[in-house]
């Protein structure tokens, strides 16, 4: 399954990924990280692993995008 990992301690809650995701997979969560930012959560199976969220995110390591392996069911 395609999957986006948000490393919540690295997220600054800027929401650029939220705006950018064409599949609306990313939403501001209710949690607050240790720095005090409202981090983003990944909540959908529509993700195409397109990587758009990864490229718009200004934090260097906040997002990891996993693409489903061949043969794996979507």
């Amino acid at each position: 399954m395609n999957r986006v990992e948000i490393h919540k301690e690295e997220c600054k809650g800027c929401r650029l990924c939220v705006d950018a995701c064409p599949k609306h997979c990313l939403i501001p969560g209710s949690g607050i990280n240790n720095i005090g930012y409202q981090f983003i959560e990944f909540e959908s199976e529509r993700c195409t692993a397109c990587g758009i969220c990864y490229y718009v995110c200004p934090e260097l390591g906040a997002i990891t995008v996993h693409k489903k392996d061949k043969g794996e069911t979507p």
Partner: peptide, 26 residues
Amino acid sequence: MIKHQKPRAFFDTFERKGPGQKNTHY
């Protein structure tokens, strides 16, 4: 399979910023 992740050209943790730091100063 990982498709996008923090590039290897970055340090894993930003020790020059502070012990164990992972986010930027931006």
